[in-house]
Amino acid sequence: MIDAATHTRIFKILSDLSAVPAEQIKVDDRLREDLGLDSVSSMELVSMLSEEFNLDIELEEAVATTTVSALLSLAERRIPNA
């Protein structure tokens, strides 16, 4: 499970990039269709996540991350003790 602090930070990044208030972002939102992130900003999202949590995420993993829940499970898999 992702801890509450990590969860909050991820939603903060999502909110900053999509300009959708964090409390309105739902776990099953799609990054493109629901949050309006284009390929550049989706990439930036994963990029910011990888930098903030010091992860080495590769391109294939980034392009496969198309929903908020996929992003959370990516974080869960990759962030130590998240």
């Binding site: 390929s39 550049v40 990439m43 930036e44 994963v46 990029s47 990888s50 995420i57 590769e58 391109l59 980034a62 392009v63």
Partner: peptide
């Protein structure tokens, strides 16, 4: 390089 690589890791 590729656009994806730049966008992910500027």
């Amino acid at each position: 390089m590729t656009p994806g690589e730049f966008l992910l890791h500027p």
